[in-house]
Amino acid sequence: MAKSESFDFEKQFAYYGAYHRNPINYFIHMLFVWPILFSFLVLLSFTPSFLKLPHIEFSPFGNLVLNFGLFPTLSYALFYISIDNRAGSLAAVFCVLSWVGGSLLAGRLGYSLAWKKRVPKIKNNLTKALVMEPFFVFLEALQMFFGYEPYSGFHASVQAKIDAELKTFRDSEQKKIS
């Protein structure tokens, strides 16, 4: 993986890791970030088709329509692959499966029932929350269960950055108290 001056993956991952140290918060993110992305794709399934193609039949489950849910799916997939070929390719498959599953579920639920879903409040940075968090959660799961690293030394480097970020946070909190 080549480092880019405009996008420092280790720095972004360390920032994410520093703010997800609470075990309950960490557990919640591991369980719910991908379902939130899935829900987003369910809602986008109700947008009109952007191509005049015959619907792809998946009977008895419903039709798959090339709608505007495909754009973020492909964008996420390509972005994740550009970050890390191996984990990104697997995450890209999950993105496509989420789009297909979301489209099929939307067809089964119908518009009025699907729009009753609520999306959690997203603070700070919308791009990080909607684009990077699913990949970070995915990468953490790969590391936790399979010991995966995008490259040798990645997790040690990220942990050092997390420790530095936490020290900066603690120091600023201590100054507020003083």
Rank of each mutant, 00 (worst) to 15 (best):
M30F: 13
L53K: 02
R170V: 11
Y111Q: 03
A92K: 00
A156W: 07
F38A: 06
S59G: 10
F169S: 03
T73F: 00
A18K: 06
S89D: 02
P35C: 10
P48E: 09
L105W: 00
F138D: 03
V137C: 10
Y80H: 09
F146L: 15
H55P: 15
K52M: 09
F169C: 07
F135I: 02
F169H: 03
P48L: 01
L51Q: 08
F135E: 01
T127C: 03
V137A: 08
A91H: 00
R86K: 12
Y19I: 04
S39T: 15
V65W: 01
M132W: 07
E140Y: 05
R108I: 06
F94L: 15
A106K: 01
L97Y: 05
S4G: 07
L130T: 07
D171R: 13
F79C: 07
K123V: 14
F154N: 05
K52A: 10
S112D: 12
F154W: 01
A156N: 14
T47P: 02
M30N: 09
W115H: 08
F61V: 04
A129K: 10
L37W: 06
S75Y: 11
F13T: 15
F154V: 05
G88Q: 01
L43D: 00
A156P: 07
L70H: 04
E5S: 06
L74W: 02
S59R: 05
I162P: 01
K117G: 08
A141F: 13
I177Y: 13
H55Y: 09
N25V: 13
L70F: 14
F27E: 12
V100C: 06
A91Q: 03
C95Y: 00
F40Y: 09
E165C: 05
S75M: 13
S157D: 04
A2C: 03
L51F: 11
Y16Q: 07
G153S: 10
G88S: 03
L109E: 01
I28M: 12
F38L: 08
K123C: 08
A129G: 12
S172C: 09
D171K: 14
L74G: 00
K116W: 04
L53E: 06
V158N: 06
F61T: 03
K121G: 09
A160D: 07
W34G: 01
F58I: 11
F61E: 02
V33F: 04
F94H: 04
P134Y: 10
N85Q: 10
A164W: 11
S89V: 07
W34P: 05
L51A: 14
R86G: 05
M132E: 09
H55F: 13
E140D: 06
V96E: 00
F68N: 00
L90C: 09
I81H: 03
Q174H: 12
P35F: 09
R170I: 14
P120L: 12
A114P: 05
S103V: 05
K167V: 14
N63M: 15
D84A: 15
L37V: 12
A129M: 12
T127A: 13
N125Y: 09
A91P: 02
Y19R: 14
K116G: 00
K11V: 15
A91Y: 05
F136E: 04
A91F: 07
P23F: 04
R170L: 13
F94S: 10
Y76V: 07
A141C: 06
E5D: 11
F94I: 15
M30Q: 15
E10M: 15
P120A: 10
F61R: 02
P48C: 04
